[in-house]
Every structure is written in structure tokens, then in C-alpha cells.
Design a protein around this nucleic acid. Structure first.
Lengths: 219, 219
DNA sequence: CTCCGTTTGTTGAAATTTCAACAGACTTAT
DNA sequence: ATAAGTCTGTTGAAATTTCAACAAACGGAG
């Protein structure tokens, strides 16, 4: 467990909990670490939503596939990100999304019941954990607001430009890489891939962006 | 304050806090009650996100208006619902949405700073409040998942049918009223109003739904 | 370095959505 | 009850998106 302390201490879920106490707490919570290959389903749609996941290394995505096979990507997951906590904390009976690894990765799993239903008053760190979970959920809420702002735009061009503006802001530069390939970006923006490629070309010809594969630059 | 105890006790934020303690706590938190007329801006886009709102009576909506004047409705707010807590808890500097009353209404306002930054350990009810806030945020997260599931559908028809299926489930019947007029429904589904009206007529002609204004019935 | 599978860009046709404009139904105020 | 204003449904044209198919570019394996 110790080798993960570095990434865990950067996880917002463990803010204000020092390393020593963190190890004790993780033990008490029954935290497990599991490794997954690339393109492996970490949590499957329809299964119980008991566990909170924390990505320790690699990369993953939250996706949903509808009736007709259209994939929708809700968000990418990077090391230090928490996933599944919204469903586990809301105690929904089954997951409406699938979490899938896009790179080989390591995941820490914590049974959310241990957080919600036990030791509620006698442990200071447990209170801090609830508080951190609350802050984390609020932040995730903001992320969904942004996703909705992006996808609520009516045209492919507007969706793309809104997304790129957020990515530029996030990276702190007008030159940045995105975590999606074309098909994934289309599935995140909820648009057609070929139309998205065409729109990227158009923006490039108009001198509004420079781009090459996953690299973009706003002019 | 006492006249609102009934609705407050049904607010998820105050679960497991009895009425007597609730009154003391609200006083301690400096809760205020304000009345608004219809079509009044309760929280304005761009303003600080300090307050948590609880709708006591009437109705309101969370909306966003873009660049070009397109309105997007993120959700309706009913009595007992909490709003603004996501932004206040995430401590964003300014609100990215506007909360607007659609009926005359009464709102309880609580400065979120009082919840996040004071009295963190010495008050049992305060801990319960944080816990409730966490659950509430998780539930709101699920709501956004549903909104995204609805609007990520590619056609007006699919968006509408997905929305109606959720409303039917929520009401527990295939016959129900929706809280939006046509323009509002279009702004919630992120589609064109006239196209939406046309689609509703089509579904009616095909015998898939019955509808009259805000009343719908799935066949 | 070459081959092969994958990703990206391009294109034209079909389907859908948006836009603008208007008429009829409904609601509210007087 | 009437009038004014709002909401809903309808329509055709314009714009956009989706779909299918293919070619070019890229990247990894051997």
C-alpha cells in the first residue's frame, strides 16, 4: 500500500489526512488494490454500485452505450480521480454506466458501505472523509455542469470550440493535448465522428485552430 | 420559521435532525427566508456562489443562457429541493447559471461558509448536516446523469421519449403532467420548439402517446 | 523496413433539425 | 364577455448532421 501513498495523498478524498492515519484508515475501510488490463471493464453497467474506485495509475473512462449501440463518453478518468462514488453514495441499486480502462491501470476499491454506515461518530478521520467526499461530489457536479454546457450547444462547431476552450483553460495554455482520439471526442461531444473531423478541418482552414491528432492550439 | 417546519422536515438536507434541533441549528446558521415574485432572478449568473437555497413554496428553474441567447434549462426546482449547493460547496468563484422563479415563491437561504468552515467538530447536528449534504450532492449527481442520458440522444424523438419514460417512472403512472410548457421542454431537451411540437404530434398520430399541453400519457 | 491494422480526413446523399412565419387555441385582465 | 397577449401546432425552405464508403496517414510488430 505504501508505494501508492504519493498518488493517494494527491487524491481529494484524503485531504487533511496525514499519511500515517491514511494507512490505518485504508486498512480499517478494507481498501483493496486491483490491476486491470487495457480495455477491461472495471465496473459494469447494471451491476450493484457498492464500491468507490480511485484510479492509481493508467487511464479509464465513464461510458454509456444506448439501445442502438451509440457510445457516449461521460468523462475521462486520470490518476487520482475518484469514480463510482456518486452512485455508491446515492445508493442506487445498479450502475447506469460502465467504467472501462483505456490503458492498463491500477485501481483502489473501497466498499462505500464502510464509509456511509459505520463508525459514524467516533472517528475524526471518518468525519474528514465524509467531508472530503462531499467536496469531491460538489466538484464532480461542476464537471457535469461543464459537460452539459458543452453538449447543449447546438452545432458541432460550437461544441468543439467550447470543449477546446475548457481544455485550454485547464492546461493553462493555448497549446495542449486532449485525452481523446477522434471517435472518443465525438462520443464525448455527442456528435458524428466524420462531421467532427470535417469541422476540425474547417476550423484549421479558417485559421482558428492548429491541430494534429490529439494536439490542439487555439489561435 | 415554525410555519415552514413541515416542508423543511421533508428536505433531504435535514434528515435525521428533529424539529427542535432543526430550529436551533437554522438560527445558528443564520438562515433567512425571502419571498420572490414570479419571473424573478433568485441567484444571478456571474454572482458569488455563497448561498445554499431551499425552495419552500412555489417553483423555480436552473437555467443558462448562452452567447446567442439560447436558453438551456438544467432542471426544475420544486418545494423541498435544494439549489446552489453544488457551486457553494465546490467554492466556485462565480455562478455559471441563473436560478429564476417560475411562480411566486419563498426561499430559505443559508450561507454555505457557515456549514463548511465553522463548528466542524463540536456539534453533532453539524456532522449530520454535512452527511446529508453529501447524500444530496450524490443524488443531484444522479439527476445530472439522467439529464445527460436524455440530451445525449441524437434525435428529438429519442430525447422526448427518454424524458417521458423518466417522468412516467417518477410519477409511478403512465399518465402524468410535466412541469414544463413547450418552450421550456424544448430548452430542457436542447431542441427546437417547433420541431418538438411536430414530433409530439407525430407520436400522437402514431398512437404512441396521448397528450394535451402539459399532460402526457404513454400507450 | 515493410506489412497490417487502426485512426483520421473527405465526400455526397439522405435524414433531421433549425428557422421564420403564421393561424388557431387558450388564458388573463378588465 | 371581450380584447390582448401567450402558447401550441403547422409548414416549407435552408442549414446542419448523420451515414456509408473509401483513401490517406499513422504506428506497432516482426
Amino acid at each position: 500500500m505504501k508505494k501508492y501513498l504519493d498518488i493517494l495523498s494527491r487524491c481529494p478524498l484524503f485531504n487533511n489526512i496525514n499519511e500515517e492515519n491514511l494507512l490505518v484508515m485504508l486498512d480499517c475501510l478494507g481498501a483493496k488494490i486491483i490491476a486491470f488490463d487495457k480495455k477491461y471493464t472495471i465496473f459494469a453497467d447494471g451491476h450493484p454500485a457498492k464500491f468507490i474506485g480511485i484510479l492509481l495509475s493508467g487511464a479509464a473512462q465513464i461510458t454509456r452505450v444506448d439501445y442502438y449501440g451509440n457510445r457516449s463518453i461521460l468523462s475521462g478518468i486520470e490518476p487520482g480521480d475518484v469514480f463510482g462514488e456518486d452512485f455508491a453514495c446515492a445508493e442506487v441499486s445498479s450502475l447506469p454506466v460502465t467504467i472501462i480502462s483505456t490503458e492498463p491501470c491500477e485501481v483502489m476499491l473501497i466498499d462505500c458501505g464502510h464509509i456511509l454506515h459505520t463508525c459514524k461518530n467516533n472517528c475524526g478521520f471518518h468525519q474528514q472523509l465524509i467531508f472530503n467526499l462531499m467536496k469531491n461530489l460538489a466538484t464532480k457536479n461542476i464537471m457535469f455542469h461543464q459537460k452539459i454546457e458543452i453538449t447543449s450547444r447546438r452545432s458541432t462547431r460550437e461544441k468543439l470550440l467550447t470543449y477546446l476552450a475548457y481544455q485550454a483553460k485547464k492546461s493553462g495554455s493555448n497549446s495542449f493535448d486532449i485525452p481523446f482520439d477522434r471517435q472518443e471526442l465525438a462520443d464525448y461531444l455527442e456528435v458524428d465522428r466524420s462531421g467532427l473531423s470535417a469541422e476540425i478541418s474547417k476550423l484549421r482552414n479558417e485559421g482558428i485552430i492548429e491541430s494534429n491528432r490529439k494536439h490542439f492550439e487555439l489561435i
